[in-house]
Computed example of a mutant assay.
Amino acid sequence: MHSFLISSTIISFMEQQFSGYDRWYRIFYNIFSLVTLIVPVFYLKSLHSPALFKWQGGWFFIRFFMLLLAFVLFREGARRYRLTSFLGLDQLRTGKRDVLLNGQETFSRSGIFGIIRHPWYGGSILLVWSGAQVYSVATTFVAVILTFYLIVGTFLEEKKLLTQYGEEFRVYQQKVSMFFPWKWLKERLA
């Protein structure tokens, strides 16, 4: 449902149907996302299923590294994104929808965005798989669904960016990896 709400088709439809909708879109989307996330979290907490995996022993260090990397990706992304745009406050004030959440007309290619294109999505995937101490059947199932959701959301966001920025964004895609810095590492090692 979240991915459906961020599709260009739905956004265009809502803008045509409701005058001034785009200024409220981000706030509505954030509230809807939060409410629809709370319900499955409480449902998950009520389930009792056997453990599939526990972050213990030597695995603790891998989990710690994943959590640390997620924190770094969130922090570095936050340096480039505007929290007021992410929350929808800028859109409410200006009446314009900010696709990039950075308050600028063009996307950033510096800092973390010179290494990966989607630090918050990448950090979220790391957090989904390292956030719990124990991964039960239910927790793992939810982690798979959330990972799928994050990947779909990323591709929808990239589709909007390609529509808005065209060849400029396509060149950026060719040079910078989506979630993990494979291209950046390859360039550094070459």
Rank of each mutant, 00 (worst) to 15 (best):
Met1Pro: 00
Phe4Thr: 05
Leu5Lys: 08
Thr9Glu: 15
Thr9Tyr: 12
Ile10Gly: 02
Ile10Cys: 05
Ile11Leu: 07
Ile11Phe: 09
Ser12Lys: 08
Ser12Cys: 05
Ser12Asn: 12
Met14Gln: 02
Met14Pro: 00
Glu15Tyr: 09
Glu15His: 12
Gln16Glu: 12
Phe18Ala: 05
Gly20Ile: 02
Tyr21Asp: 00
Asp22Ile: 04
Arg23Pro: 02
Arg23Tyr: 09
Tyr25Trp: 13
Arg26Glu: 11
Asn30Thr: 01
Phe32Met: 10
Leu34Gln: 08
Leu37Ala: 13
Val39Gln: 09
Phe42Asp: 08
Tyr43Thr: 10
Leu44Gln: 12
Leu47Lys: 11
Leu47Ile: 13
Leu47Val: 14
Ala51Gly: 01
Leu52Arg: 02
Phe53Cys: 13
Lys54Arg: 11
Lys54Pro: 01
Trp55Cys: 07
Gln56Tyr: 05
Gly57Tyr: 05
Phe61Glu: 00
Arg63Lys: 12
Phe64Val: 06
Met66Gln: 13
Met66Gly: 06
Met66Leu: 15
Met66Lys: 03
Leu67Lys: 13
Leu67Ala: 09
Leu67Ser: 13
Leu69Tyr: 14
Leu69Asn: 09
Leu69Val: 14
Gly77Lys: 11
Ala78Thr: 09
Arg80Pro: 00
Arg82Tyr: 01
Thr84Lys: 01
Leu87Thr: 07
Asp90His: 13
Gln91Met: 15
Leu92Pro: 01
Arg93Cys: 04
Gly95His: 03
Gly95Ser: 02
Lys96Tyr: 11
Lys96Glu: 12
Lys96His: 14
Val99Pro: 05
Val99Thr: 10
Leu100Glu: 08
Leu100Asn: 09
Asn102Met: 06
Asn102Gln: 04
Gly103Thr: 02
Glu105Asn: 06
Ser108His: 04
Ser108Cys: 07
Ser110Asn: 15
Phe113Val: 08
Phe113Met: 12
Phe113Pro: 05
Phe113Trp: 13
Gly114Glu: 01
Ile115Phe: 08
Ile115Ala: 06
Ile116Leu: 03
Pro119Arg: 10
Pro119Ser: 09
Tyr121Pro: 02
Gly123Phe: 00
Ser124Glu: 02
Leu127Glu: 01
Leu127Phe: 06
Leu127Thr: 03
Val128Gln: 01
Trp129Met: 00
Trp129Glu: 01
Trp129His: 00
Trp129Gln: 00
Gly131Asp: 00
Gly131Val: 02
Ala132His: 13
Ala132Phe: 15
Val134Leu: 05
Tyr135Ile: 04
Val137Met: 10
Val137Lys: 03
Ala138Asp: 06
Phe141Arg: 03
Val142Met: 11
Val144Gln: 09
Ile145Met: 15
Thr147Ser: 15
Phe148Gly: 14
Ile151Asn: 12
Ile151Met: 14
Ile151Pro: 09
Val152Thr: 03
Gly153Asn: 09
Phe155Pro: 00
Phe155Asn: 01
Lys159Phe: 15
Thr163Pro: 00
Arg170Gly: 05
Gln173Cys: 15
Lys175Ala: 10
Lys175Gln: 14
Phe180Ile: 04
Pro181Arg: 08
Pro181Glu: 08
Pro181Cys: 05
Lys183Pro: 04
Glu187Gly: 06
Glu187Met: 11
Arg188Ile: 12
Arg188Glu: 07
Ala190His: 10
